[in-house]
């Protein structure tokens, strides 16, 4: 009897995979630690900023006699200042007059360096998820905000002035009814809409600014050659990516996983909650038009026009 190829897999590989798998399970804890570390560094940064502000304020105010102020402590002895900085009662420490303003060798500089190290620390933690390097496949999706109420969504857009990159839902109404909005990146360079398309199907649209997220969802290399056959009409057990009419279709076992296209730096990826398999192609919906050879191009062109018109 034929054996499946993985049954030839060696024990050492399986052990290694188990080890990696268990290690991956500890990642959230690592992430939490990183967040705590980042918060600590941010606090340190804020304290440093307060020191600088206080220093400048001190310059503008009449000279303070050392030791007479309960809030601002001027310490002539750098060693002593460093020591006292570790104590609760002197949270704000001002170096001697000569060190104030512009002297970057004093505490604020150290804090700045620490903050930079902190950023590096965060990057490292994220990179670890992909064995040292963040890649296309390593896009970490941690929602920074999820909004399921349309009113709240409108308020959010107003508060953030729409975020420079956020496409207003009003430009996407053709896709379906608003279901939720998920912000995946604080700089608004990656977010997702969930639509109810009216046929009982939830369509996800993930928008990514690929100039910010170098590794986006779609393939960067395979989406180059057109295919002879129209893969939208396929129904057999096809695996892989096909590209037609500037649209990328990803199939797994003949089931459609996603539909993706790009316009300039923006990438738009449509997917279902699990797969688009079983999507009602005969329904008069945006996705059904997108998945039909005769109407797909028009569908995309209409959407592109809407995006340009509706982009804030």
């Amino acid at each position: 009897m034929n054996k499946d190829i993985m049954s030839y897999c060696g024990d050492d590989i399986l052990d290694e995979a188990d080890k990696n798998w268990n290690k991956a399970g500890n990642k959230p804890a690592l992430k939490r630690l990183t967040v705590i570390a980042a918060a600590a560094l941010l606090t340190a940064g804020l304290i440093a900023a307060a020191v600088i502000t206080a220093s400048k304020l001190n310059e503008m105010l009449p000279p303070v006699v050392p030791g007479t102020s309960a809030v601002i402590v001027t310490d002539a002895d750098q060693t002593e200042a460093t020591t006292s900085a570790n104590t609760a009662e002197s949270a704000i420490v001002i170096p001697p007059e000569s060190d104030i303003c512009g002297d970057e060798t004093s505490a604020p500089t150290e804090t700045k360096e620490s903050a930079e190290t902190g950023r590096e620390g965060i990057t490292t933690a994220a990179e670890e998820t992909d064995s040292g390097k963040m890649t296309t496949a390593g896009v970490i999706e941690i929602p920074t905000k999820t909004i399921i109420d349309y009113g709240e969504y409108r308020s959010f857009l107003d508060e953030t002035e729409g975020g420079v990159n956020i496409i207003d839902y009003d430009a996407l109404k053709d896709i379906g009814d608003f279901k939720s909005f998920i912000l995946l990146s604080d700089d608004f360079s990656e977010y997702r809409y969930l639509f109810d398309d009216g046929s009982g199907f939830t369509v996800n649209l993930t928008v990514t600014d690929i100039s910010v997220h170098e590794s986006a969802n779609g393939y960067e290399t395979l989406s180059t050659s057109e295919n002879d056959s129209d893969m939208r009409l396929l129904s057999d057990n096809y695996d892989g990516i096909r590209y037609i009419d500037d649209i990328e279709y990803m199939y797994v076992e003949g089931r459609l996983l996603w539909v993706c296209f790009r316009d300039g730096d923006m990438e738009y990826l449509f997917s279902g909650d699990s797969m688009l398999d079983g999507y009602p192609k005969n329904a008069d919906t945006f996705m059904s038009k997108l998945l039909t050879a005769e109407t797909a191009a028009d569908c995309i062109n209409t959407l592109k026009a809407d995006l340009k018109g509706g982009n804030k």
């Binding site: 897999c9 995979a17 959230p28 998820t129 992909d130 296309t136 390593g138 999706e141 990803m250």
Partner: peptide, 29 residues
């Protein structure tokens, strides 16, 4: 990471969503 994903999918037949959750990455990834 790629090796582990591959082994867990094709040796242990783990569902893709469980693998994605484990690594904190998308199904697409």
């Amino acid at each position: 990471r790629d090796m582990t994903i591959f082994v867990y999918r094709y040796y242990y037949a783990y569902p893709v969503d469980k693998i994605a959750n484990r690594y904190g990455i998308s199904l697409q990834a």
